Amino acid sequence: MFSLSDYGYDLPAELIADRPVPERDTSRLLVLDRRKGDVAHRHFKDIKNIFQPGDLLVVNDTRVIPARLHGVKATGGRVEILLLDYVGGCLCLEREGVFQCSCLVKASKRPAVGSELFIGDRIRVRVESLERDGSAILSFHTEDPMPHALLDAGSLPLPPYIERKEENPDDAIHYQTVYASRQGAVAAPTAGLHFTDALLGELRTKGVELRHLTLHVGYGTFAPVRVEDIRSHSMHSERFEISEETAEAIYRAKAEKRRVIAVGTTCVRTLEYAAIQEGGLKPGAGFCDLFIYPGFEFRVVDAMLTNFHLPETTLMMLVSAFGGYDHIRKAYQEAIAERYRFFSYGDAMLML
């Protein structure tokens, strides 16, 4: 279970969801019993009958920013910029008066340090340094209010496997969770895309407690694992924050032996990372770089909602650790046979 090839599978291309279902909570739901490996087929709105009074549901309230910027070099050549650390840029702006952060730059030739790029006629960009991992540190300059100028100029960075010939303006709505509030992610925490305000209201009425945390999903979520022995993989880090209210709610739930249900791999990683720090799970902020693969001991999360993930990714390794390697293999095979929709805009899985 430590070989990269252990996490591969064959997926028919037509099962990759390139657009959402018309109504969020009508997506399908595969329910996996983590102990027995049994699988049941439901619809997402059925969770109101599966969750129990007293369950604590933890969601990630990060909001995807329009992080993809198109511009030109001083020579006129086209360039594409992807903001990797929007929050870091905002903090730099507060400290030093300039928006500067890590970015990916796509061009026919990599711009040199000190060169300038232009986004429209309002934003000038300077290349401050080139990093070993292929990223670049860029500073952004404009007479307009920053960072709003960047958000106005950018477009939503849909996952690379969503290939469309036409832009869909509805993505600005559908590629955000209904509770997204804190700007900073370059990818959506996709397990949460299935919730509607009405469904969340029904869960609260039933007695399910809802709490938020923040983990700003980074581009590293799409980064391929390039080592055959997965234990040698270096995990990317992402900014997170856990409020005092959320930390206290989790502490109470665990003490009272109530279920903690994490919505998505981002919540799982954040909660488990916080739990293994000195002193245990506490409110605070920092960078999460926890890599979860089979053999990991879960301390906080009792159940998990997630989507179906790309093969040979750290996300597949995490769900295999939580659901059981053999159970996940079986569940994915059944999902393919039953024609479930895969990846960000696809169907969901609940592991109990």
Rank of each mutant, 00 (worst) to 15 (best):
R252Q: 13
E116V: 09
V301F: 01
P159N: 06
L215R: 00
V208N: 07
C92G: 15
T190P: 00
L350C: 10
V72M: 13
N60I: 10
M317A: 10
D25K: 04
I250Q: 11
R24D: 02
P53D: 09
L150G: 03
L57I: 07
E256R: 13
A136F: 09
E241Y: 13
V225A: 05
C92A: 15
V268I: 11
I162R: 01
T196K: 02
F287E: 15
G37T: 08
D347W: 02
L350P: 06
R95F: 01
V300Q: 04
D347P: 04
G324D: 09
Y179D: 03
D85C: 00
Y9E: 01
P311H: 04
A321Q: 13
T142Y: 04
I328R: 03
E14W: 02
L151Y: 07
V319A: 12
R329V: 06
A40G: 13
P224G: 08
Y251V: 15
L104M: 12
K257T: 14
N168G: 08
L91M: 10
A198E: 11
A223T: 12
G77I: 06
C101L: 03
G89Y: 00
V268C: 04
A107E: 15
T221F: 00
R239K: 15
Y219Q: 06
V217H: 06
H194D: 01
V59S: 14
L158H: 04
V301L: 05
G220I: 06
G37A: 07
S155D: 12
Y345K: 14
F118C: 06
D38W: 09
R35V: 07
L4P: 02
I276M: 14
D121P: 09
S115Q: 14
F343S: 12
G324M: 08
Y340N: 11
L213R: 07
V79F: 02
F222H: 09
F308E: 08
R124T: 11
V178A: 04
L210E: 13
R95S: 08
D33C: 01
E116D: 13
